[in-house]
């Protein structure tokens, strides 16, 4: 789903955001960023560059030391805890460390995301089956996640993030443990969510294979500073300047 920066309001906006962890570790410094509705946005950078911090700030798992963060036009610092929980139901987050319950099945892990929105059992079953088929995990539905490989666990985490058809999906290193075939499945899932649901996808990655040929925006985080990716395609330059 192509986005139109001239008419669209940003879904996510960071204005001069700085995050300093105690005692004085600067994770992000004066970062300003706009991510538009319906956009697939790649955030690249080495380990420790601040990608995960930025993702956590967007879903308010962390609060900025300085600066403003708005999601869907709302200042996160002004939203009540209950409001944040409601917002998180609309944001899918795939964590780098998966955050799965290893003693529960794949179905139960994915269903959790929909259960918190009180979806019907029938709807949950149908959605889980659809996602597992998209990620080639249908035969693992009733397996305990602890018995799965790292790559399979990663895909389960992505399926859980995508379960509610989120308006914003934040994926932190979503292909870190995947082979090329599985990586392709994940990219297809992102495309599917973006095109069918209009989901905005933010992918934090250092896996070049998933953004090298993309026509979407790619930005690079280095030592807490955000800049355009150095090896951009002409289309990416056009998008960045827009």
């Amino acid at each position: 789903m192509p986005r139109d920066a001239s008419t669209d309001k940003p879904l996510v906006e960071l204005v001069s955001v700085t995050k300093i962890y105690p005692p004085d570790i600067v994770a992000l410094e004066d970062v300003s960023l706009r991510i538009y509705k319906g956009e697939i946005f790649f955030l690249t950078g080495m380990s420790g560059a601040g990608k995960t911090t930025l993702i956590k700030l967007i879903c308010r798992l962390e609060t900025p030391t300085r600066g403003l963060i708005e999601v869907a036009g709302r200042d996160l610092s002004q939203i009540s805890p209950a409001g944040i929980q409601r917002m998180r139901q609309k944001i899918g987050i795939a964590y780098q460390d998966f955050r799965l319950l290893e003693k529960q099945t794949v179905l139960q892990n994915i269903a959790m995301a929909m259960e918190v929105t009180y979806a019907s059992t029938k709807a949950i079953r149908a959605r889980v089956d659809e996602l597992l088929a998209l990620l080639n995990l249908s035969d693992k539905r009733d397996k305990l996640t602890g018995e799965l490989s790292r790559g399979e666990q990663q895909r389960v985490a992505l399926a859980r993030a995508a379960a509610n058809g989120p308006s914003l999906l934040l994926a932190d290193e979503p292909t870190g443990n995947l082979d090329p075939a599985a990586t392709e499945l994940v990219i297809n899932l992102f495309r599917h969510l973006n095109e069918k649901n209009g989901s905005t996808i933010v992918v934090a990655t250092h896996d070049k294979s998933i953004y090298a040929e993309t026509e979407h925006r790619v930005m690079d985080l280095r030592n807490g500073h955000l800049s355009a990716h150095p090896n951009r395609t002409p289309r990416q330059i056009e998008l960045f300047e827009a």
Binding site: L61, P81, A82, Q85, R86, M87, R88, Q89, K90, I91, I93, Y95, R99, L100, L101, M112, A113, V116, T117, R160
Partner: peptide, 15 residues
Amino acid sequence: GELEILRLLGATSAY
């Protein structure tokens, strides 16, 4: 562990 994940998934206080 489960409560922490539920919190991350947006489970409300009532839930």
